[in-house]
Structures are given as structure tokens and as C-alpha cells.
Design a protein around this nucleic acid. Structure first.
Lengths: 231, 231
DNA sequence: TTAGAACCGGACATGGCTGTCCACTTCCGC
DNA sequence: GCGGAAGTGGACAGCCATGTCCGGTTCTAA
């Protein structure tokens, strides 16, 4: 994966780099992209200096960590596309995506927003979009997916799952259920009521999260604390 | 609304208080709860000192601003409950909720997470939940809502809409479409396939949006902690 | 073995946010 | 009017985030 064309690193530096990436991967998955850099350094057992030497910005680290995540995503959609039963393939892709989103808090962010601007993540994302487009068309041709379904509806599905996963204590179960509902709605059937106009957004058109709320509120009593110059 | 039992305020102070609340309402709606306090003060045309004199913490301000939002929500659900056609009432409530979520970025946060701990928002939220439970049961009895639909699925709907609204450039259209899909899936019909197990969460069981960790997989090498070679 | 380049850790600079303090100003009862 | 309590604005403290710097350490090539 890491075919980084950079200058050869010293043996110990390579070790540390690997450790950093592993720590970052775990940290992002469990705590989201908000996890501080020094926390990642701590988990990796290196100093901040070392971390920033390898990855000049947080963005660079995110990019490295998620390049292969996106690649996995590409593979997943490709696999669904090769399923002889289009509808089953479609459902599998949607379900697997939902699972990935529910188990990794940062996945949706990386997949949908431009946290990194000039990156392999970005191109991978485009690949995903193209493949999803094919998947949709193929399933519609087979007659199992609503004719008015649009690729943008998959973005909708991703974001919906993300919203659920971000707040619920058991994201897996919740996302499974949401996905089951959505797949039911996506299937071609008797109901031919027109849908509201489709949203014309791709994965690149989304705005950054800012997950509002965040009034501090770590849970551990971080009350105002009266720390002024006492008087 | 503001039946604040505090001491009588001076005329100019009342003016400023009103201005602050109005500015906060607008700011929260458009920018989310992350908007800084001094930005709110600026918009209200007052100093920070004044703001903090009226509302000792940001939490208190949020509480004040959203008490009536939640009240509106209660009224909305009540209205749906009085619709002679249960299914139509149900759909109206879900749609209106989605609209509210899509037009006010902070609404979902206030509705679903405990940003404020001891507050009228909290009790209003419980009222909303009770009413939603009735709404669900009533619609099921009328035979138009799936028998295996659960009140928790409305929470799912709220969170899903929130996820979409947070990221998409035109939240209104996107939420409308998502809601149309979901309502289709919720309706009782020919499809009697079992759903995955329901999620047993209420509005109060949700975790804050940021930094709560533990997506159910923390054990993955969390703390190598090898801490420095000799030196 | 050894010299020096690469590497290391952690202190520090910077900036944004919440919340505090206080010297000054304004309203309002008498 | 006038005196004082209530009110005001903005400087400032403390915290936590990203990213920088540098004195000391360690790998490695010769």
C-alpha cells in the first residue's frame, strides 16, 4: 500500500511510521477524526515531533490512513457489481457500506467530505462514484430497483447511516435496521408514487461536518470550575 | 415563554436580553451550536460581559433558545395525533420533523442529545417521546403502519435526517426525499419480511456527537505505550 | 570505531474558544 | 437632580487544539 516515493527512511524511523499509522487508524475508528494529534502520538508511543516529521499536517495523516479504506470500498462495490443477481449485489453493497460506516466513525467523513484536498482519497472516491453509478443502472435494468432511483440516493443512504451511527449507542444494530427500511423503499414495486426531486449531489459536493453540539461536554465533570484570579 | 423567575430587570437590560436570544436563535439555526459566544454577542450588538451576565454558561443560552423549539415540536406531534386519518397524521408529523431538522442545524442536536442536563428542554423531550409513542400505536391500530415499527424508528428517522442535513448543500430537498423513502418503507404492505431487531433507544439514550469513543471496538491496540528508549 | 546525518521527544508558539473581572456608564426611585 | 445599584463592554485568564523548533540521541556507512 504505502508505496511512498519519499527518501529511504532509517530502520527505526520506519518502525515508528508504521506504529503511527496503526495508532491513527485505531484512534480515528473509535473516536472520529477529532482525536488530537498528541493523543495519536501518545498511543503510538512517539513524540509529537516525530509524528509531525512523518506527516506534516493532520490532513496528510488522514490521507495515508484512509487511502486503503477507500480502496477497500472500491473493491466492495466491484464485488457487488460482479454478483450474477443484480439486486442481491446491490443490497450487499448497501449493507456492507452501512456496516463499514457503523463500525468506523471516521469512514463517512473521509468518504463524503473534502477533509483532504489533493489526495488519493479523492481519486478513489471518484472511482467509487463511477462504480456505484454502474451498479445502480445495472440493477434498474434488471427491474428490481425503482426507475427513479438515482446515484445521489446512495449518498443519501451513506449520510443517513452516518447520522445514526454518530449518535446511537449500538450503531451496528441501528444501521442494519435503517438499511433494511431503505432497501425496502428502494425496491421496485407496486408503489409508483412520484418521489420528491432527487438531490443532485456527488460525494464531492458535501460540506464539511462541523457536527454541531460540542459544548465541551466530555462527560467527565468539566464544570466551569472557578479558576479565575480568585480575588 | 420566558417566565423566568429571576429578579426584575431594568428596561434596557430586558431589551438586551431579547436581542441576545434572537441573535442566538438565528446563529444556532444557520451555523449550528458551535457558533462562538462572542459571535453571538457581536450579532446581538452587546458585549461579552453582558451576554454572560444574562446567561452564565453557553448551555443556559441554548436552553433558553430551544425551550420553545421543543414546545413547537410537542404541538406539532399533538396536531398530528388529532388528525382524523391516523396515517396522514403520522406522515405529516414525520415530514414536518424532517423539515424542521433540515432548516435548523441545531434542532436535532437539541432534540436528541443531552447538551443541557437540567432543563425544560429535557422534560419537553420526554413529552415528545410519549406523544410519539401514542402516534405510533394509533397508526398501527389503524393498520397503516407496519406492526413491527417501533418508536425507536422515529429516533432513527430523526438521526438519519440530521446526518443528511449536516452535509448536503440543500438539506430541504434531500430530507424530503429521504423522508419519502422512509415513509414508503414504514407503511404496512405486502412485504412482511422480518426487520432486523429494533433499536431500543429513546431520545435520552443518545451520546453526544463528538468524542464519545467506543464504537464497540476499542480493544484494537489502544495503548502500546512503550515509552521511550533509555536516554 | 567513529563521525555525522537522520532521528527523537517534548517544550513552546499560536490561535480560537469559554468564561471572569473590573472600571466605567446608565437607569430610576426619591 | 442625584446617588447608587444595576448594567455594560472589552481586556484577560485558562484550556486545548495544531504545528514548530531545538538540544540531545541513535543508526549507519565508511
Amino acid at each position: 500500500m504505502n508505496t511512498d516515493g519519499g527518501p529511504r527512511l532509517r530502520a527505526d524511523a520506519i518502525q515508528n511510521r508504521v506504529r503511527i499509522v496503526a495508532a491513527a487508524r485505531a484512534a480515528f475508528a473509535s473516536d472520529g477524526l477529532d482525536v488530537p494529534m498528541n493523543e495519536i502520538a501518545r498511543r503510538a508511543g512517539v513524540g509529537q515531533g516525530t509524528l509531525y516529521r512523518r506527516f506534516p499536517t493532520k490532513e496528510a495523516l488522514i490521507d495515508e490512513v484512509f487511502a486503503d479504506h477507500v480502496e477497500n470500498c472500491v473493491n466492495m462495490v466491484s464485488a457487488g457489481l460482479r454478483d450474477p443477481d443484480p439486486w442481491r449485489g446491490f443490497c450487499t453493497v448497501i449493507r456492507k457500506m452501512a456496516m463499514a460506516l457503523s463500525s468506523d466513525r471516521s469512514f463517512a467523513v473521509v468518504l463524503t467530505t473534502r477533509v483532504t484536498d489533493e489526495s488519493s482519497v479523492r481519486s478513489g472516491r471518484r472511482a467509487v462514484e463511477t462504480l456505484l453509478g454502474e451498479l445502480v443502472r445495472r440493477t434498474q435494468v434488471a427491474g428490481r430497483l425503482r426507475a427513479d432511483f438515482e446515484p445521489g440516493d446512495i449518498v443519501l443512504t451513506i449520510l443517513a447511516n452516518d447520522g445514526v451511527a454518530a449518535a446511537v449507542p449500538d450503531p451496528r444494530a441501528a444501521c442494519e435496521r435503517l438499511t433494511a427500511y431503505l432497501l425496502r423503499a428502494f425496491e421496485a414495486g407496486i408503489d409508483t408514487n412520484a418521489l420528491p426531486t432527487a438531490i443532485a449531489v456527488g460525494l464531492d459536493d458535501l460540506r464539511p461536518p462541523t457536527r454541531s453540539g460540542a459544548t465541551g461536554r466530555d462527560g467527565a465533570g468539566s464544570e466551569p470550575e472557578r479558576r479565575g484570579r480568585g480575588r
